[in-house]
Amino acid sequence: MNNIRALPTATPPAPVLETRDLTIRFGGHTAVNTVSCAFSPGHLTAIVGPNGAGKTTYFNLMSGQLKANEGQVLLRGDDITTLSAPSRTRRGIGRAFQLTNLFPNLTVHENVRLAVQSRARVGLDIFTLWSRRRDLIDEADELLRSITLLDRRDALASALPHGDQRKLEVAILLALDPDVLMFDEPTAGMSVDEVPVILDLIHGIKARGDKTVLLVEHKMDVVRSLADRIVVLHNGYLVADGDPAEVMASPIVQDAYLGMGLADHV
């Protein structure tokens, strides 16, 4: 069943991000195995699969936190396989993390502003007062407002409850304003009433039409409401890729999920 494509991939126009036979091994275990896939602007691709399937690892390979053993990552046709994480970010690949990953002893506002500042390329400025950059401050606050965190702007990131930390994680990604946005289970551990804020934001980004959005998500209702396309990973292999309804109905996905005892997710 290696690398079987359940469905023919719809050929979207000019992919922004592409992987070719991407592979990484941890000791004897191959966490991502010869995965080839391309992602285009204006589309939201959901990447699903059971725990340990390799979804986060696949993200790490594309955003540069991990380096592939084999295969390539291409951004707008350029081979970026060997580039570091920061240079990939600067080229427009943005990443939010599954395990919340913040600057704990800086304020909520500072967390977002650091991302705004990185995008504005003013990090190496040692002479301007950081409080004098009204434009960056306002932009960060505007983002906090959109994600309903503005009232906590001066709290330390570490003092936020889990749900708010997840929101902050997403706000930091949005602040980078990248061309490719990768969300790794953005709503995991959030209370039910907090989830719609995040989903609306992701929906808004997709609606703009110029962004490429990748979303790892276990909640199938979320996937169904947002995704134009679903990619299924299983044991490091890409096992299905295509239109959401068809992928969900395909036997191989049913098998993979049923076999993992995750039927209730489907």
Binding site: Q65, S87, F97, N101, F103, L106, S118
Partner: peptide, 17 residues
């Protein structure tokens, strides 16, 4: 501020570019 961010979490600072 970037220095402080790097001190706090260099992994995330890299992910920010």
């Amino acid at each position: 501020r970037v220095l402080q961010a790097i001190r706090e979490n260099d992994f995330r600072a890299e992910a920010l570019g």
